[in-house]
Design a protein around this nucleic acid. Structure first.
Lengths: 383, 383
DNA sequence: GACGAAAGTGAATCTTCGC
DNA sequence: AGCGAAGATTCACTTTCGT
C-alpha cells in the first residue's frame, strides 16, 4: 500500500475527477494513434477544444514553381503568371493557411505549442499569419541540409535549408521545453536555432514497388526526433494535420508519445500505416533524459537543518572563502550583521541583485568545499 | 604590378565599362558616395525613378523586449532598447515597412535587387509584404552566427541566426548574380543559402570615446562583402536606407561600388563618415579582415543517438569492463548515480580531472569492444 | 614583455510560486 | 492583480589585469 504525501492526499479527489472528465471528453472524440482520412480542416473541426499538446505541420509549400496550390476543398488552382493572378494565389494560400491555423488554434491546449515547416515560398506567409492570429513565436529553427540539391543552373545560391516556426499558443503560455535534454543532445552546449541534418534518403526513404519515392517531401526522422524530444513529454498527444507518409507518427510512437495524423491521399496513408506498424516503441527503461531541475520538488533549507543533514552551527562559506556564515536552528543563516535565508544573505554580502544560496554557499567536507546543493540532492535521494 | 585574385580577374573587364556608364547616367541626379541626413522615406522620395542597382536594408527589428535581462553572474545585458526600434503594433510596423518598401521599389532599377535583413521578430512581416508588393524572392539567406549570445535562462533554443531576404524587382528581372565569384569564394563549391560568420566585435566594432559601442547592431563587414560581391558589379550604385555606422558604405568603397546612405542619427553619421574616409578601395586594402570562419559543426554524441547509429539503450563500457553506462534518449548517459555527457560521466566514474568520452567508452560489436569514436567516423562518412 | 587568470560582452521577444 | 522571495541560468570571444 502506498503512503500519500499531504499534498497528494489534498489533490487526490480532484485528480480522479479530472482524469475521469478527461477520459470521458477525449477518449470518445480523439482518435489516438490513428490516421484520419480526409481534409485536415474538416477533420480538425470534429475534434474538441484544447485537446492536443503539440501540433507539427508540414503544409503544402505551394506556388509558382510548379507545385500545385490546392484550395481548402481540394480543387486545383490554375497556375497563372501575371501579377494580378500571382496576388490572387498568395491571397488564396493565405486563406487556406488562416483556415487550418484557426482550427489548429482551437484544438491546441493553452499551454501547447505548434511547429510549422516551410521554405521561402510559403514560410513568410505562414509566419506573418501566425503572429496576426496571436500565436507567440518562440524560435525560428533553420534546418540546415548537409546534402541539399545543388542549383543546377547557377542562377541563385544553393537552396540549402528549410525553416521551422515554433510558437506557443499565446505570449503567456507555459509551453514545454526540455532544455536539459536538448543541451545533453548537443554535447552539453545549449541547442542552437540552426540544426544540421541530412535530407531523408537511403533506407529511411519510403519507395513503392516501382522503386519510386512514395512522397515527394518526406522529412527525416532525425528532425522529428528533435522536435518531439524538445517540446513534448511522454504520453503527450501530437497532431500532424499534413501527415503524408507518417514521419511524425513513427517518431512519436518510438518516443512513446500519442499521435493523430490527418491525410487525404490513400497512397500516403497506406504507406504510413505499414511504416508505423513496423516501428517499435523504445523500451521504457531506455526513455531516460536529463531531468529538468524545475520539476524537482522544492526543498526548504530548514528541512535539512531539521533533519540533521546540515545541523545548526554548520559553517557555510562561498567558494573563495571570502565570507563565512553560520546556520541557525531555524534554517536562517548569519554572516556579520546580515541574517536571513541562504539566498537573502548570499545576495546581501555580495551586493548582488539576486543569489541562489544552494550553489553560492559551500560546506567543507574532507578538506574540500562542496555546494549546499549536494546536501539537497542527498535529501531528495533519501526520500 | 599587382597579381589579380580570381575574383578580381572575373570582375575586371566589367569594371571600366560599368564605371563609364555609371558616371554618365547617374552623376547629375544622385548624391553618390554621400550620407543623406534624415528620414529614409522622405529622402528616397526625392530620388529619381529606377536609379539604383541594389538596395541593402537593415531596418528596425521591432524586438518587443520586456524588462531587464540579467546574466547568471548578475550583470545586465545591454539591450537594444533604442527609441527607433519601438512600434505600437504589428499593424504599425507593417505600415512603416510598406511605406519604405514602396519608395525603394520606385527608385530601384527594373533589373536591380534588394536585400533586407531581420530576425524572427520582423522578417516574416517583411517577407510577406515583399511578396505582396510584387518583389520576387530569390533566396532567403541564413546568417549563422558562430558566436551568438546564449539564452541565459534556458527557456528556448539559442537564437543563433538572422535572416536576409534577397529579391529581384519582379519575376522577370535580369538580376545580377555573380555565380562564379561566389563559387570561388567558397572553395569552388556552390555558395549555399546559409553563411557562417562571426558577429561584429573586436577591432571592427566602432566604439566612442567612452569605449561604448556606437551602434547597438553594427553588422560585420564579411556579411556585406558577400552580399555586394554576389549581387552587384563594380561601379553599381548601392543604396542603404538604414545606414547606421556605414558598413554598407565601407564595403562598397572597398569593392569599388558607388554608395548612398540615409541615416537619421547624427552620431551614427559622424562615425560612418570617419570610417568610410579611412577605408581604402580593393587593391590596397588589407583583405585579412575578410577571412571567414568556416567552422565545421562538431559532431555531438546526441547526433548519433538521434540518427539511430547509437540508439538509446545502448550499453557502453570502458575498455576493461569496469563500468557500464546506458545511453539515454537525449544522448546523456547514465552509470549508477552519475548522469551527463559521455565526457562528464567518464570523468566522474574514474575520478579523473577530464575524460574524452569518444575514446573512453566502448561498444560491444560481434563480441569485440570498439571505441565510440568508430561510430563518429561512420557518421562523418555517411554525411 | 610574456603569459595566464579574470572580467567583459553581443538585435534577447529569457521564471515560478505563493500570498 | 501585483508583489516578494525562491531559485535557475551562459557561449565564444575580446580585453584587462596581475604576476
Amino acid at each position: 500500500m502506498n503512503e500519500l504525501t499531504p499534498i497528494e492526499a489534498y489533490c487526490a479527489p480532484q485528480l480522479a475527477r479530472a482524469q475521469k472528465r478527461s477520459r470521458r471528453q477525449v477518449a470518445k472524440s480523439l482518435p489516438l494513434d490513428t490516421i484520419i482520412e480526409g481534409d485536415c480542416i474538416a477533420a480538425m473541426a470534429r475534434m474538441p477544444d484544447k485537446s492536443v499538446d503539440m501540433i507539427f505541420a508540414d503544409p503544402p509549400y505551394n506556388l509558382q514553381l510548379g507545385g500545385d496550390l490546392l484550395r481548402p476543398e481540394g480543387s486545383k488552382v490554375d497556375a497563372c503568371d501575371d501579377e494580378w493572378d500571382r496576388f490572387e494565389s498568395f491571397a488564396q494560400y493565405d486563406d487556406f493557411t488562416r483556415d487550418w491555423l484557426t482550427e489548429a488554434r482551437r484544438i491546441l491546449k493553452d499551454d501547447g505549442s505548434i511547429w510549422v515547416i516551410g521554405s521561402y515560398h510559403n514560410i513568410y506567409r505562414v509566419g506573418s499569419l501566425l503572429q496576426d492570429m496571436g500565436y507567440w513565436l518562440l524560435n525560428d529553427i533553420v534546418w540546415r541540409k548537409t546534402n541539399p540539391m545543388p542549383n543546377f543552373r547557377g542562377t541563385r545560391f544553393t537552396n540549402a535549408h528549410e525553416t521551422m516556426l515554433w510558437c506557443s499558443k499565446s505570449e503567456k503560455s507555459k509551453y514545454t521545453f526540455n532544455y536539459r535534454a536538448m543541451k545533453a543532445l548537443n554535447d552539453d552546449l545549449q541547442m542552437r536555432s540552426d540544426w544540421s541534418l541530412p535530407i531523408c534518403s537511403g533506407g529511411e526513404r519510403l519507395k513503392n514497388d516501382e522503386g519510386e519515392k512514395v512522397h515527394p517531401t518526406q522529412k527525416p526522422e532525425g528532425l522529428l526526433y528533435r522536435v518531439l524530444l524538445a517540446s513534448t513529454k511522454p504520453g503527450d498527444v501530437v497532431l500532424d494535420p499534413f501527415f503524408g507518409t507518417g514521419t511524425t507518427g513513427a517518431v512519436a510512437k518510438r518516443l512513446r508519445r500519442r499521435w493523430i495524423g490527418i491525410e487525404r491521399e490513400e497512397e500516403y496513408i497506406a504507406a504510413a500505416r505499414e511504416r508505423i506498424e513496423m516501428t517499435l516503441p523504445l523500451d521504457e527503461s531506455n526513455m531516460v533524459t536529463m531531468a529538468e531541475k524545475r520539476s524537482a520538488p522544492r526543498v526548504a533549507f530548514g528541512l535539512l537543518v531539521e533533519s540533521g543533514l546540515v545541523p545548526a552551527g554548520t559553517v557555510l562559506m562561498d567558494a573563495k572563502r571570502r565570507w563565512k556564515a553560520v546556520v541557525g536552528l531555524d534554517g536562517s543563516v548569519k554572516c556579520g550583521e546580515h541574517q536571513g535565508s541562504i539566498h537573502q544573505v548570499g545576495k546581501l554580502v555580495q551586493g548582488a541583485p539576486s543569489c541562489n544560496g544552494w550553489t553560492f554557499w559551500q560546506v567543507e567536507e574532507k578538506g574540500e568545499l562542496k555546494p549546499l546543493d549536494i546536501w539537497r540532492q542527498r535529501h531528495l535521494g533519501g526520500l
